[in-house]
Design a protein around this nucleic acid. Structure first.
Lengths: 193, 193
DNA sequence: AAACGTTTGTTGTATATTGAACAAACGAGT
DNA sequence: ACTCGTTTGTTCAATATACAACAAACGTTT
């Protein structure tokens, strides 16, 4: 991942097409009933081409989740809110954009959570989030003397749980509201400076 | 055109991508200012690939117009309303779907008409419509003894003019209303049975 | 169990597309 | 007039994808 040399346009295109197609079919059919052919037809791609990039239907599922989470994280610069010297407005904006991202890709997230494979998704997002926080967390200042692992785990768990609740309950509140609420909760728990 | 043997998926995909990209860029930039690179980048296609399918920027424009008009005509089964023994409701539905098609692809049509190249587009759609009517028109019944060419020309001109007016004036009336009006006008002029 | 259609991976060859380079034409600015 | 950056077509070898065929595994039905 994160290769410097640009990948061939064709690869990027077909992967995108496959991903999009998979998400669409996934939101319509139970995962077990999905065939590779369903996906290839929807993506307008040869069936064999899928095997060129993914070993399996399950591999495709996992990579698809990974990709989506990566995009979510990076497009939202989520980690800002956990850093030292964080600007309050900046952090709130990051949170808001995160909830917005989920809202825009609601199809994907709700499908993921409504399927039987909930745990896969949950673990995936939590793992992703955890490592993402781990890289950027600043243990100075308010976090000095604290147990890093515990902070991370606490934050990630609370956060993922909130996201899950929000998604499963069909977005009872708008992204702005959610961002405000979550931000307040983090502050109250001294998670941020 | 209308080849029996299926074309390679890649060709269809890239042509679609190029078409879409061209329309997008066309709606943002004046035609003369559009570069092949603009289109290739938007379509996520190599610049050379465009030359594989189109000789020119102008060729691309023309083919794009053709394609779109073909789709419009066929998707609307427009010719129904000019045939003998036409069912009133069926004809109105065809008209309505035509106006709906334009509304859905408003970006394209308004771009076409707002550019300096209005005449190209106008002539294109009129030629397309004319030949389409020519194939299907029934000279029996009410049209017996009439000059076929004149009927066709009259119909096509009136129709295209109305479309143009509707598009340029930013859709002052909904498709249903337009369909009703146009249908009444045709009846009044004894164009249909 | 046997027969059936469907799905799965895999393979070989054909082909469309890529990326890079090129010379030529163009347009803008000095 | 001259330079500069951009756009245009064109070429080439490299590569990703298409298509078709295949045997194996699977799920259903009888």
């Amino acid at each position: 991942m994160a290769i410097g040399n640009k990948t061939d346009r064709r690869i990027l295109r077909t992967k995108e097409a496959i991903n999009r197609a998979f998400l669409e079919v996934f939101s319509e059919k139970e995962f077990d009933r999905i065939t590779i052919n369903d996906i290839s037809e929807r993506a307008n791609v040869n069936r064999g081409t899928i095997y060129l990039h993914y070993t399996d239907k399950y591999d495709l599922l996992n990579r698809c989740i990974e990709d989506h989470l990566d995009k979510m994280i990076s497009s939202c610069t989520l980690t800002k809110f956990i850093q030292e010297k964080v600007d309050e407005n900046e952090a709130k904006e990051a949170l808001k954009s995160l909830f917005n991202y989920i809202q825009e890709n609601f199809l994907f997230f709700s499908s993921m959570l409504s399927s039987q494979k909930t745990s896969i998704f949950r673990e995936g997002i939590q793992k992703n989030l955890t490592s993402s926080i781990q890289e950027k967390i600043d243990m100075q200042g308010i976090n000095q003397g604290m147990d890093k692992e515990i902070i991370i785990e606490f934050t990630a768990t609370a956060f993922v749980g909130t996201l899950e609740w929000w998604i499963i309950n069909q977005k009872p509140h708008p992204p702005e509201y959610m961002a405000d609420q979550v931000w307040t909760l983090f502050k109250r728990n001294n998670i941020t400076s």
